[in-house]
Simulated assay, not measured.
Amino acid sequence: MPDLTPEADGFVLHHYAGSPFSQKIRWLIGWHGLHWHSVNVPAIMPKPDVVALTGGYRKTPFLQRGADIWCDSALMAKVLDAHGRADATLFPAATRGQAETLAQWADSSLFWCAIPYAMQPAGIGALLGNPPPEVLKAFAADRAAFTPDMRRPTVADAGAALRTYLARLEQMLSANPGGFLLGSQPCIADLSAAQSVWFVRRAGSPVADVLQPFTLVAAWFDRVAVFGEGQASRLSSADAIAQAHAAAQAGRHVPVHVAQGQGLEAGAAVQVCATDCGRDVISGELVGLTDDEIVLAREDERAGRVHVHFPRLGFDVRAAR
């Protein structure tokens, strides 16, 4: 395992404690033994410091290194994995296709039944720390704006789907003596699936009782949770913005390019938004575009010229109107 220091590594995770996708990334950081800087972001809008760095991306978490910002945990995981342990990866070549496909299912289908099931009245108090009614109302309004066109399942439907998916995970683990979903070594699919189990567990009894029949899932979850969260040092959002500004002034950005045949040219004014939820539009200058990634350059008064990276899957990019 490399001997990384906060100064040598320089990654900043913008997150909050109760965010499932943040927990996925914290486990990844822990498994790699990375040092990192921790910036806590608000759970609901407004998020002015987040907007300064991302241009309006409202999902949590996002990753920063200097003047480069990575959005979406699928892309963040690949970036961090590439800077982690030299002797192992969470994207093993032999099972990478399976791992990423399974992770995509876990980040979508599994996630979107676990969340509404856990957020039922019997669980929401434990998940949000027993907030007063006005806080609950503000949280509900924020999440309604986050998923305006999504048809939310009933608790009964979400529970039925969750039990079905847990049974599938249980069967996978039963057929595989290695201890993880695709073998004896963990992969990105393990983290993606475990984040939903983590969220349901946090809801406490009686909500979390849905997990009790699935003993192999429970043992597997414990093997993931032991990864920990690495070594974090606190950083304010103002300091993170200052780091971005300093790197931008020095012209330090990760090399990117616009590949041929992608339908857009370098320097084009474009707009990017997620295709599932949190579909806030981020505008900027196109500086990177491949089958895997979209990169916008955008100017901010406080952060300077930042490069905001998105995965190609799950995001829409088109010329600005």
Rank of each mutant, 00 (worst) to 15 (best):
28 L>K: 01
4 L>G: 09
30 G>Q: 09
128 L>T: 12
3 D>Y: 00
291 D>T: 10
36 W>D: 09
55 G>H: 00
296 L>I: 04
186 P>E: 06
217 V>N: 01
128 L>K: 01
294 I>R: 05
161 A>M: 13
259 A>Y: 03
295 V>P: 11
85 R>D: 14
313 L>Y: 07
201 R>C: 03
134 E>A: 14
22 S>T: 03
205 S>A: 15
234 R>Y: 04
107 D>M: 09
191 L>G: 09
192 S>E: 09
92 P>K: 06
178 G>P: 06
240 A>T: 04
317 V>S: 08
299 E>H: 13
10 G>Y: 05
210 V>R: 01
222 D>A: 15
112 W>Q: 11
298 R>D: 04
73 S>L: 01
99 A>F: 01
149 D>V: 03
11 F>I: 05
45 M>K: 12
253 H>F: 10
212 Q>Y: 02
19 S>D: 06
104 Q>D: 15
273 C>G: 03
248 A>K: 08
239 D>V: 01
49 D>Y: 00
211 L>A: 10
287 V>W: 02
278 G>I: 02
30 G>E: 11
226 V>A: 12
232 A>T: 06
304 G>E: 07
54 T>I: 00
91 F>V: 00
41 V>E: 14
23 Q>W: 12
65 R>M: 07
278 G>E: 01
185 Q>H: 12
308 V>Y: 02
280 D>C: 05
120 Q>G: 06
93 A>N: 04
67 A>N: 09
159 G>S: 03
27 W>Q: 10
23 Q>Y: 07
121 P>V: 07
9 D>H: 14
45 M>R: 13
226 V>H: 05
27 W>M: 06
92 P>Q: 08
214 F>K: 07
288 G>A: 04
205 S>D: 09
183 G>L: 09
162 L>F: 05
147 T>M: 15
302 R>Q: 15
46 P>Q: 06
78 K>T: 14
45 M>V: 11
304 G>K: 11
69 I>N: 04
62 F>S: 00
295 V>C: 13
73 S>Q: 06
1 M>S: 15
120 Q>E: 08
35 H>G: 12
50 V>I: 05
108 S>G: 11
244 A>W: 05
39 V>K: 02
61 P>N: 10
274 A>E: 11
319 A>N: 00
289 L>V: 01
14 H>N: 11
58 R>L: 09
160 A>T: 13
107 D>Y: 07
198 W>I: 05
260 Q>S: 14
145 A>D: 13
228 G>Y: 05
306 V>N: 00
76 M>E: 15
61 P>R: 07
82 A>Q: 13
214 F>P: 11
95 T>F: 02
266 A>V: 05
2 P>M: 13
28 L>D: 02
203 A>M: 03
92 P>V: 09
17 A>W: 02
308 V>S: 03
142 D>S: 07
33 G>W: 06
177 P>D: 10
228 G>K: 10
77 A>G: 11
59 K>L: 13
126 A>Q: 14
39 V>H: 02
63 L>H: 08
81 D>W: 06
23 Q>I: 00
168 R>K: 12
213 P>H: 03
203 A>R: 04
153 P>Y: 04
20 P>M: 08
5 T>I: 07
151 R>T: 14
286 L>W: 04
198 W>V: 02
128 L>G: 04
257 H>C: 04
114 A>E: 03
188 I>F: 13
204 G>L: 10
